[in-house]
């Protein structure tokens, strides 16, 4: 089966992002960019399905300006077969991303679409679910295990109380959680090979989608700072402080 995997270019997870002093936006000058960690897990899962003989082709898609081709190449180096970039400005809302992905789904007809559960910039956790609704596909979100079982997909999901398993008709959408797999590192020969793999570029118009905006970011600000407190000498002093100063235990 054909697997479509979506990847997003985001600030590297090691970077501590700050609001600009004028509050207009976050300061992304000269920060390191990378593939969203959850998307990397999605690519790894797709590649493993191919290695297991379940998937026949893995297509990596990204929505964004030309720079996101770097993340598509990363996915290709990890084992995806070919790439698709849908050329837009860098900040596109999840609903529009989902519509563009729906357009790619219509073109490619994959049996499975794997996405990260959220991106670590906007922390929205929306795109996979929205794609599911638009394409009328079932979804296995926050997945920690994915098993293809004939024409069904069994997905074990991380939920509030523990784990839940659902059975989905194919085609289906899966969004990854942290413990689905541990992504591999791309080898140098594979990075070189990835440069030669096919990468098609579409415009939103090619996919019949109008890029709209529903939300405006009015301002950004740093969160309320927490002041470091004191170091206590020993357990006795800690218990005393909690009882008599903070009064949180009795």
């Amino acid at each position: 089966m054909k697997v479509l995997v979506a990847v997003k270019r985001v600030v590297d997870y090691n970077v501590k992002v700050r609001a600009k002093a004028d509050g207009s936006d976050v300061d992304l000058n000269n920060v390191k960019m990378a593939i969203n960690p959850f998307c990397e897990i999605a690519v790894e899962e797709a590649v493993r399905l191919k290695e297991a003989g379940t998937a026949t082709e893995v297509i990596a898609v990204s929505i964004g300006d030309k720079a996101c081709q770097e993340q598509i190449r990363t996915a290709l180096a990890l084992g995806a077969d070919r790439g698709i970039q849908v050329e837009t400005e860098s900040n596109v809302e999840p609903l529009v991303v989902a519509k563009l992905l729906k357009g790619v789904v219509d073109k490619e007809q994959p049996q499975l679409v794997i996405l990260g559960k959220q991106s670590i910039d906007g922390d929205n956790n929306q795109t996979g679910q929205m794609l599911g609704a638009l394409a009328n596909m079932p979804q296995g979100t926050f997945a920690s295990e994915v098993v293809v079982d004939g024409d069904k997909l069994n997905v074990t999901r991380e939920v509030d109380g523990g784990l839940q398993t659902v059975s989905l008709n194919l085609p289906a959408v899966v969004t990854t959680d942290l413990r689905l797999n541990e992504p591999r590192y791309a080898s140098l020969p594979n990075i070189m090979k990835a440069k030669k793999k096919q990468l098609d570029v579409y415009s939103p118009a090619d996919l019949g989608v109008e890029v709209t905006s529903h939300l405006t970011q009015v301002s950004v600000e740093p969160p309320a700072e927490r002041q470091a407190g004191i170091k206590v000498e020993d357990v006795d002093q800690l218990v005393d402080k909690l009882k008599n100063e903070a009064k949180v235990i009795s």
């Binding site: 992002v17 700050r18 609001a19 910039d121 922390d123 970011q217 301002s219 950004v220």
Partner: peptide, 9 residues
């Protein structure tokens, strides 16, 4: 947003 490092309005 950004893991709570920034609050967006």
């Amino acid at each position: 947003i950004y893991a709570g490092n920034v609050i967006a309005t």
